[in-house]
Amino acid sequence: MIELRNVSKVYQQKKRQIEAVKEVNLNIEAGEIFGVVGYSGAGKSTLIRMINFLEPPTSGDILINDQNLRELNKKELLLTRRKIGMIFQGYNLLSTATVYENIAKPLKLEGVAKDVIAERVAKYLALVGLTDRKDNYPAQLSGGQRQRVAIARALAHEPEILLSDEATSALDPETTESILRLLMKINQELGITIFLITHEIEVVQKICDRVAVMEEGRIVEAGPVIDLFTRPKEETTKRFIGSNDSYGVPEDVLAAYKGTGRLVQLQFIGDEATEPVLSRVAKDFALSPNILSGTIGYLKEKRHGQLLVQFSGGEEADFLAAKDYIKSQGVLIEEVC
């Protein structure tokens, strides 16, 4: 669907060259939600703007449905861009136009027939839940409602791809949650491929199928969300997902358990997150599990539980046997110290 081959972007600033994106290679499959996460200045915004050639890459190729954008003339590129919708952090709505007009005007400029415009505006306002707001102006809407208008405007072109440039970073948590649910609905009901960039790891955790971690213009790690959350390899990834913070257990409390060899991190994925594994360990292996901290959430629609546990009692053979049993139940176990 989307393929980036050795894509780089270099800006010339007086006598200095700034490498914003460095030799990025990515493949985004049709119908998936793909996220790129990174700290400010990582090169995310430049990367997403290159996908529709708003920022032509300095080197490398970008292919949409096997069509190389670099090889297109202006007219062909314009037609291709119509298949790529984009939503922004700042909404980019016309303040003097109504909700209806904000969605309709770009279609008018494309020469779409008036009755088709009316049909599409109605359809996508209904999808984003703003049918009753069509005559309002942006100033009369909340931030979340304005972003929904921006999404409806992008969808009115009936694109195959939707690009999201930090679309939720200016919203409060509750509104962010509703926008993420809307993006999932769009992906599932319309089959639109979504490529998003964000610095909020929770966004990736809740809706993405796959994710790439970006730092200083490079992709440092990429793969299925569940793999990066449960088996991160790079330090940047670990910092993002908080795998090194011991779930907020104070250091003085944690120090009492360090050096015992039985302080472990457990990760439960999917159905395993509801299984009584620790109670079975306590019953069958003469060990006493002491839960120091834990969280439970979802990686998209899969339950993901994490526990920091210290095992006491029993012999070393009991602990080793318990570890084998825990692994056999599909639970990831890693010794902390």
Rank of each mutant, 00 (worst) to 15 (best):
V249A: 12
E29Y: 13
I186V: 15
T175C: 12
R5Y: 09
E334V: 13
N102K: 04
L182G: 04
K74M: 12
N136F: 13
E335S: 07
S40W: 05
Q89G: 06
P224H: 10
R70M: 14
K258E: 05
T168H: 06
S328W: 01
F53R: 02
I296F: 00
T96C: 11
F195T: 13
P138V: 03
I51Q: 05
G129A: 08
A118D: 14
I28C: 08
Q89L: 07
G31Q: 09
A156M: 01
A170N: 12
E3K: 15
Y100T: 04
N6S: 15
Y298V: 03
T58D: 05
G90M: 11
H157L: 15
A317L: 04
K238P: 02
V10R: 07
I2L: 11
K108Y: 12
N244C: 13
G35S: 09
M214N: 09
L332V: 03
T58Q: 03
I226E: 10
D318G: 01
K108Q: 14
I28L: 04
D209W: 14
I64W: 11
R49I: 08
T198S: 08
I186Y: 05
G248N: 05
L155S: 05
S164T: 11
I117C: 00
I48R: 05
V336F: 01
E29C: 06
K185N: 15
E275I: 06
I87T: 09
K15I: 02
L78R: 15
M1F: 04
L180G: 05
G35F: 02
Q329T: 04
Y124F: 09
D61R: 15
I161P: 03
D245M: 12
L77Y: 11
I186K: 09
E275T: 09
K134N: 09
S293Q: 07
L109V: 12
P56E: 08
A170H: 06
Y91A: 07
A150H: 14
L109W: 11
L171K: 04
E334M: 04
L308G: 01
Y325H: 03
G242I: 06
I241G: 04
Y11W: 06
R231M: 01
I207N: 10
L155N: 13
M86T: 12
P250N: 06
R153E: 05
F229M: 03
V225L: 06
T168Y: 08
M86K: 04
V264T: 13
Y100P: 07
E251C: 11
P289E: 06
K15N: 15
R239Q: 12
S328I: 01
I194K: 02
V36P: 00
S40Q: 10
E301F: 08
I151S: 06
D227M: 08
G313W: 06
L155F: 11
K327G: 01
G305Q: 03
I192K: 04
L263Q: 00
G223T: 09
I269V: 13
I62D: 10
T131W: 10
G314Y: 00
T98L: 10
L109C: 08
S95A: 00
F195R: 10
P138W: 00
L130S: 05
R5F: 07
D61G: 15
R218D: 12
L180Y: 06
N102W: 11
K114C: 10
S8G: 03
E301W: 07
C208P: 15
G223W: 13
A118N: 14
Q13L: 15
N25K: 12
P276G: 08
R133M: 15
G330R: 00
E32R: 14
D66M: 00
I48E: 05
L47R: 02
K9D: 02
E189S: 14
